[in-house]
């Protein structure tokens, strides 16, 4: 028995869509333990963003304005989250950069066990167990937390974004707590944002991804196909490290975990760390000139050939087929 607290993530004054994965988790978990869930909207402009999550069935939506720093700094957010979470059994966020930074520190304040980046919640005898990928997704652990309060982050690609359920949760304002010890030694300077007109990788229905084989022709080669398919661009570590694609586009064990309906892999060898981030895609297409490339072991449709001829042909072919 107990209730669940969702920590929402803000970007540009709005709750990020990723938060709706934590809502999906909370609906299942609350039903299993016979409780309800609340959503905490925290950050700069929290009150204005709350309206975005009042239609999802939360018992209440809490807002906490953080004005002691200019952007997200864990030391300024964690004390407030932890103070509020004291009254709950589970505190959860989506496993984005924000959630993975904040939730373990909140857990530390609450002496809570932490299940990171879970792919499923499994009710067992009135308690919750958590299924989480380990070894780059090559094994799954079924985890039990032994503490009264439990901290969780959920994998966005495995918990589909919740749909609104109607109704309107009441909104309450809560006071921010003073920052953590040591916060006087940390200062937010700036956020260098990567701007893109394309959908976010974690939201996209189609992803056009490129590896080292695409060289520095990322935008000129893959951009037109991405636009045709309303797709997000993705990349491997090798192409991000080489500066061919922005770091933000990296798909993999340590980049974004994605599961679109359609994933194109061009000039990607298929290293374990890359597969860990895209194996869950519904349909995988791979184009690689090396017939032995491991990417073909997971691709539904593999084409052995040169991507620089295949991509333009594919664009023409898709246009003709539509």
């Amino acid at each position: 028995m107990g209730n669940i607290l969702i920590v929402a993530e803000l970007a540009e004054g709005k709750v990020r869509k990723g938060t709706l994965s934590a809502v999906t988790f909370a609906r299942t978990a609350a039903a299993a333990i016979g409780g309800t869930f609340d959503i905490l909207v925290i950050g700069q402009g929290a009150a204005g963003a709350a309206a975005g999550v009042t239609g999802f069935g939360a018992a209440k939506v809490l807002t906490a304005e953080i004005s002691s720093c200019k952007g997200y700094v864990c030391e300024h957010f964690a004390p407030t989250v932890a103070e509020i979470a004291k009254g709950y059994s589970v505190v959860v966020a989506t496993a984005t950069g924000f959630g993975k930074d904040l939730i373990p520190r909140v857990a530390a304040k609450l002496d809570a066990g932490y299940a990171a980046d879970i792919s499923a919640v499994i009710p067992e005898g009135g308690a919750l167990t958590y299924r989480r990928p380990m070894f780059a997704g090559n094994a799954y652990g079924i985890a039990k937390l032994t503490t009264p309060i439990q901290a969780v982050t959920v994998r966005q690609s495995e918990f589909t974004a919740a749909e609104p359920s109607g109704g309107s949760s009441p909104v309450e304002t809560v006071a921010a707590q003073p920052p953590s010890a040591g916060a006087d030694r940390i200062e937010f300077l700036s956020f260098d944002q990567v701007k893109s007109a394309r959908p976010e990788l974690t939201d996209a229905r189609v992803i056009v991804s490129g590896g080292r084989g695409v060289k520095d022709k990322f935008e000129s080669t893959l951009g037109p196909l991405a636009d045709l398919m309303s797709a997000a661009l993705g990349a491997t570590r090798a192409s991000c490290d080489a500066g061919f694609a922005p770091a933000d586009l990296q798909v993999g064990q340590t980049g974004k975990i994605v599961a679109p309906d359609l994933y194109f892999a061009f000039g990607i060898s298929g290293a374990i760390q890359h597969l860990a981030g895209m194996k869950g895609s519904k349909v995988i297409v791979a184009v690689n000139k090396d017939p032995e490339a491991p990417i073909f072991q997971v691709a539904d449709y593999g084409l052995v050939g040169d991507l620089f001829t295949a991509v333009p042909e594919l664009i023409a072919g898709i246009k003709a087929a539509r």
């Binding site: 066990g113 094994a139 039990k144 997971v298 539904d300 593999g302 072919g317």
Partner: peptide, 30 residues
Amino acid sequence: LRIQYPRFEPPKGRAAGKKVKDVAELVDKL
């Protein structure tokens, strides 16, 4: 320990797909 793993599971395997001979066949399959 704050976290325990009473059991583990292997991942669901993904069946290897097929190779297509050219872009025309790929478009047709998609």
